[in-house]
Amino acid sequence: MSISRRSLLKGAVVAGAATALVGRAEAREEVEPRPDAVGMLYDSTRCIGCRACVTRCKEANSLPYDRTAEGIHDAPTDLNSNTKNIIKVWTAGEKSAFTKQQCMHCVDPSCVSVCMMGALHKEGEGKRDFAGEKKGTGVVLYDKGTCVGCRYCQIACAFNVPKFEWFEAFPLIVKCELCRHRGDPKKEGPLAIANPACCEACPREAVVYGKREALLAEAKRRLAEDPKRYNGLIYGEKEGGGTQVLYLAGAGVTFKQLGMPELPEESSASFSERVSHAPYLHGITPIALYGAMAFVIRRNKSKEEASEHHGEGK
């Protein structure tokens, strides 16, 4: 008995060490932005808070109104199951700045990492064959057919973007899908995938649609052209592994004040998968462990039965 125990412990130590070593070597690679990634650039300094984008988003996505208590205004206070896009204001004394919230279409999205059956997936990379979805644009789409409504995406998303229809017997997860249903085949290349209503509605090009690379270049150009206007940073270039919706904010305004979480450069998905996948070694560990345990248990049992002389195993 003591021998089996000791050998078992020894085995465990060896397995653990192997796991640690190989696990490091096998660590998940960082996801890089796809070359065809599309997204949006929101410039808080250009936004005048007209909310044409909020109204048009609701129209384009046929979303219900979010009426105030009196019922006379459509006034969501936050993203919710009726609202995929919202304009909020930050104020401090005399200073104020607008910000826009919608799905960030992360380069390495947490929601996609956690979604059990790929209901939330990057375009063309879901678990089912989606007609008409091309790979590479990196837009995060929702497939209600495989969603079980576990809401893990809501836990995982650092931006609190996915929303749930709490008051429906057959609810959906609701979030911006970059108006994929308004996709415009006349647009060139990957841009044909979508045509966000908010970008179309904006009277000041405070939010524009384009390829992520082009938007990033444009953001940098704006920063270089008028450095005094901006706080000098581009949110979403690196934050949380990068996002496909990029933000610019005015001088003296931090992104945190605009409600953006402070995220490390490593995406949450990468961290989580790195830590929890390492010990599995692509499934080798559980199988080996199972085999070893079955062997030990069977041996122990036959020994026990032999010592009892009459088979009374349970």
């Binding site: 909310r51 009426r67 006379i72 205004h73 006034a75 919202i86 909020k88 607008f98």
Partner: peptide, 19 residues
């Protein structure tokens, strides 16, 4: 009467509204 097609009021939600 009910408002048929309501739109946003003249006030904005704060960054972190109360829930």
């Amino acid at each position: 009467v009910d408002v048929e097609r309501p739109t946003a009021p003249g006030t904005y939600p704060p960054i972190h509204p109360d829930h």
